[in-house]
Design a protein around this nucleic acid. Sequence first.
DNA 1: ACGGTTCGTTAGCGACGATAACAAGCAGGG
DNA 2: CCCTGCTTGTTATCGTCGCTAACGAACCGT
Lengths: 229, 229
Amino acid sequence: MSTARERILEATGELLATKDALAIPTRAICDRAKVGMPEIYRQFGDKQGLLTAVADIGFARFLAEKRRNPLTGDPVADLSAAWDSHVAFALRNPHLYRLMFTPTGDAKPQAIKEAQAILLRAVERCRDAGRLRMSPELAGRSILSANVGVCMMALSFPELFGDPALSHAVRDAVIGKVTGDEREDTRIGSATLLAQALVGTLTGTAPVSAADLERLTRARRTPDTTPEP
Amino acid sequence: MSTARERILEATGELLATKDALAIPTRAICDRAKVGMPEIYRQFGDKQGLLTAVADIGFARFLAEKRRNPLTGDPVADLSAAWDSHVAFALRNPHLYRLMFTPTGDAKPQAIKEAQAILLRAVERCRDAGRLRMSPELAGRSILSANVGVCMMALSFPELFGDPALSHAVRDAVIGKVTGDEREDTRIGSATLLAQALVGTLTGTAPVSAADLERLTRARRTPDTTPEP
DNA sequence: ACGGTTCGTTAGCGACGATAACAAGCAGGG
DNA sequence: CCCTGCTTGTTATCGTCGCTAACGAACCGT
């Protein structure tokens, strides 16, 4: 048999799969957990305390799911995968997600700092790969803010904002801005082709190596890594 | 003397400036509005009905504030200004904002479609100026989702996400991606300079006009407007 | 065996959302 | 004028909620 505290947390989590957190009566929790009402207040002091404890457990699951995400060689692709797993978690546990990311009153779960820390590490891998254009802190918070916004809108107004293409658009926008958007390369590449064509038509000589041009443009690009004032 | 309905709405709005919506007792509303309790239920049928009515009034103020925003010649700059006024409104009316954008239960205010419509018009002005890279609908929803996310995180976790620089970073990211980021022009411009230098060194002739190259690159860019499959 | 801690049970308080029942005012038509 | 119908105010009450007090039973180490 599990302890009373564990049963209360588990029962709350199960009821949270059906109703919103504030719509769950403590008596229903006690019934399901086979516990008397005072046990909740002995263990958590408050209903808010119970809910924040549940939110923290939710964060633990959330972060465990993110840690289980394998790291590929491309840290930017890992950022995208983390974004998608975030959205999937929100859609799979809507009420728990709202409890975690829109705390009521002054009951802010402190586990969000850990989520930010994990994102920070993922962003720092991008920086180490030379693919970050701002401070890791600002980058991580930008991604998390936009990610939460997409999830909240998808949960609150699914008919208008539930489209997965919306999530992908915002994801590519913010990740692309934070890291060096790979479209830059293709665009500069097309300008390179243009330059090659110009050289070819104007001189009739063989075009310059694309690798040479790429090296030159990369040299021009790196100073942009410093944050704007 | 105003009608009972107006007094109830006004009283609720005033109390909403101090507490969260769900923490406001209907009796406090009745006391302040000088109304008996049944009046609320005669007018709005429900507390949810009252709150959604208040949320709709909040949307009206929100949209009026946006409409008051003057239109400059640069539609992209107008998008940025709209983003900033959105954030300012959220920080000025935190509880009302949460009531508007994170509805409880099934009480979704329908006024959000109007907000999306206004954003849509602002985005279409960008498209008419040739500065849009996706469908206006997707663009508007992307901006609104990210905007709401920044506001919600700033309200819920101000010590971590209250930095205005964070709002600006996400704003520039999503607006830059949706419209044609002006950095593209500068980057392509530098590549153009590179091409000019190449042409100059390899041939010794006068470089091609930058306007000609810009016209060519713009011709290559427009097909990207079509949404990805 | 004993005292302290944890857990379960009952009962109850005060506040809340919501409703019923009824009275007061005020319109317009006979 | 009264009668009728509608909106507004008043009081009382119901059921539920979060929360607590009081008491008792089980457990555990010394």
